[in-house]
Simulated assay, not measured.
Amino acid sequence: MIPQRIYYVWFGKNKKPDNIRNNIESWKKENPDFQIIEINESNFDVYKYKFTKKAYESQDWAYVSDVARIDILFNNGGFYLDTDVELIKSIEPLRNARSVWGLENSDAINTGLILGSEKGNKTLKELLDIYSKITFKHELKNHLVTVPIVTNYFLKHGFRKINRYQILENDAHVYPVEYFAPLHYWGGGKISKKTIAVHHYAGSWVENNIQWKKYNKEWVKKELILKVPSLFLKLKKMKQSLTS
């Protein structure tokens, strides 16, 4: 069973803005029996991995967080949430799984939405093994985004690119988009009765991340083509008429 702990990362020692403090308060409100723990320079060795060492030295805090969250949960167990995640329901019912993951869209698993795990989880160990072989370089960070790294790992372990609840190897429970990412980063979406958390996409690193934007832009285009073919053809004809 996953311990009653929620971790978040705050490297760089900057002051937390009001919206982040409000999100953390929502975690406490919905989970009064959980311990809330901040991961920072005092309780995580940023030099433990080549990846985090280089990311920390270049002040790319989000990339330090990508590995720190996995390491902390592997060694202690609990849940991790990005600071721009607001909880609107308790995560207590999720504790029976060996690990918990959230879909950002039908073909992307994002550990920032939620990551829950028992201590010593095999899946987390294998992800740490992947990161231990990667050296972070600031100039190449657009190719080191955690979403495709984690998603590609799961594609080799039973993950299917569909927006459905899936239980994969090692009892990894992957939840559909509406549970943890009901509002899309490009706009739109809606909160449903199944929604547990809302990811507000406050990270400034996302705005400048070419690879991340390209990865998701391609997904949006694919969804339009597959699911709304008539709309896609109509837009295409409109574009042709304007350019002719």
Score class of each variant (00 low, 15 high):
Ile2Thr: 00
Ile2Asp: 01
Gln4Ser: 12
Trp10Asp: 11
Gly12His: 09
Asn14Val: 09
Asn14His: 13
Pro17Ser: 04
Ile20Ala: 06
Ile20Pro: 02
Arg21Trp: 01
Ile24Gln: 10
Glu25Gly: 03
Glu25Phe: 03
Ser26Trp: 07
Lys28Gly: 04
Glu30Ile: 00
Ile36Asn: 06
Ile39Glu: 05
Asn40Thr: 01
Ser42Asn: 15
Lys50Gly: 12
Thr52Ser: 11
Lys54Met: 09
Ala55Glu: 07
Ala55Ile: 09
Glu57Gly: 00
Glu57Arg: 11
Ser58Ile: 00
Trp61Asn: 06
Val64Asn: 04
Val64Leu: 06
Asp66Ile: 05
Asp66Cys: 03
Val67Gly: 04
Val67His: 04
Ala68Ile: 05
Ala68Asn: 03
Ile70Leu: 15
Ile70Asp: 02
Ile72Phe: 06
Phe74Asn: 13
Gly77Glu: 11
Phe79Lys: 07
Leu81Lys: 05
Glu86Val: 01
Ile88Leu: 15
Ile88Ser: 08
Lys89His: 12
Ser90Asp: 09
Ser90Ala: 08
Arg95Ser: 03
Arg95Glu: 03
Asn96Thr: 12
Ala97Lys: 14
Arg98Tyr: 09
Arg98Cys: 03
Arg98Asn: 15
Val100Trp: 05
Glu104Phe: 03
Ser106Arg: 13
Asn110Asp: 15
Asn110Ser: 10
Thr111Ala: 02
Leu113Glu: 04
Ile114Tyr: 02
Lys119Asp: 03
Asn121Tyr: 00
Leu127His: 06
Ser132Arg: 10
Lys133Ser: 14
Lys133Ala: 11
Ile134Asn: 05
Thr135Ala: 09
Lys137Asn: 13
Glu139Val: 04
Glu139Ser: 14
His143Leu: 11
Val147Phe: 00
Val147Glu: 15
Ile149His: 01
Ile149Thr: 10
Ile149Val: 14
Thr151Met: 03
Gly158Ile: 09
Phe159Leu: 15
Ile162Cys: 03
Ile162Met: 08
Asn163Gln: 08
Arg164Cys: 05
Tyr165Ser: 05
Gln166Phe: 08
Gln166Glu: 10
Leu168Gln: 08
Asp171Phe: 05
Ala172Glu: 10
Ala172Lys: 01
Val174Asn: 01
Tyr179Gly: 00
Phe180Trp: 11
Phe180Ala: 05
Ala181Gly: 05
Pro182Lys: 06
Pro182Glu: 09
Pro182Ser: 10
Gly188Phe: 07
Lys190Thr: 10
Thr195Ile: 01
Ile196Asp: 06
Ala197Leu: 07
Val198Leu: 13
Tyr201Ile: 00
Tyr201Ala: 13
Tyr201His: 15
Ala202Ser: 13
Gly203Asp: 13
Gly203Ala: 14
Ser204Lys: 15
Lys217Arg: 13
Leu226Phe: 06
Val228Tyr: 15
Val228Ile: 09
Val228Gly: 00
Leu235Ser: 11
Lys236Trp: 11
Lys239Ala: 11
Leu242Trp: 10
